[in-house]
Design a protein around this nucleic acid. Sequence first.
DNA 1: ATGTTATAGTTACAACTGCAACTAATTGCA
DNA 2: TGCAATTAGTTGCAGTTGTAACTATAACAT
Lengths: 157, 157
Amino acid sequence: MSHPRKPAPAGAEHAPLELERFLPYRLSILSNTVSQAIANDYQRRYDLSMTEWRVMAVLARFHGLSAREVAERTAMDKVAVSRALARLVEAGRVHRETHGGDKRRSVLSLTEAGWIMHDDIAPMARAHEREVLAKLDTEEQQWLTRILDKLLGGQGA
Amino acid sequence: MSHPRKPAPAGAEHAPLELERFLPYRLSILSNTVSQAIANDYQRRYDLSMTEWRVMAVLARFHGLSAREVAERTAMDKVAVSRALARLVEAGRVHRETHGGDKRRSVLSLTEAGWIMHDDIAPMARAHEREVLAKLDTEEQQWLTRILDKLLGGQGA
DNA sequence: ATGTTATAGTTACAACTGCAACTAATTGCA
DNA sequence: TGCAATTAGTTGCAGTTGTAACTATAACAT
């Protein structure tokens, strides 16, 4: 309210972005749609955030990781991981002990309850992925994999 | 601390997700990386969130939209748009008036200052997009466009 | 005309996130 | 040794976001 400016006329000399053709925008929509669909599924069943699920997923694959290693593998920052772990440990889904030779480091693993959740959620997640890929034919799927490999370059793990 | 469960042994019967090959995860990393790179640029120059930039971008293209229409075109929810607009109007970047025939609706447009920002940011955003696409050859670029068209189906527009 | 339903937009609250500051343990090096 | 610099992880705070509830206006249907 404190800046009563007049609207400028829509001059032809401007070159507005066309969001619907703009790659970053389209990636963002697609990514959010897909991730949200999966998250809905497991949030209905369990009280579990996407961050927490990702932590569980890496702990299912790699055993005895430290919190920092989880952060590296999930591309999340260490604060997010720390908080996710606090909730997961509290809920009895992850077991945390201290590294023998280095008392700073934690040694993490899924509990029995964590594994049960994992074995329930992982197939659901894969089903969603298949559902997305089913919109593409085999050739397109191969190109997509290749393109993502190139775009993610080194960092995409 | 209140649930001292033992960790389960990493049995071979589990089928953990491989995040680094999991499409939703890879999309999420890529999308965040790209969008964040662009956002950094204009957040350094202006105090402007990604949400606000998207609102400005559609107002640059479509004149006299209402808040609801902005929400539709940006695929954001109306609350996010309402808050972005509050800040943009306050900062003198967007002009808001009330629709003649319907006092609920707003009629939005960029101010002169808004246009100047837009004309500064839009080329930067396009440059980032080109930078990403430069990692692909022409054939891959065409496939990517086609694949996104299919995956985004109706809604992505 | 008047009560019901729908729509545009805002507000309130709780959860989440990101950054910086902090503690604790370890390493390096003089 | 012992003190500075690193590293692992947590906490606090400020800003953001998402959901639901709310206000105001308009459309509809009797």
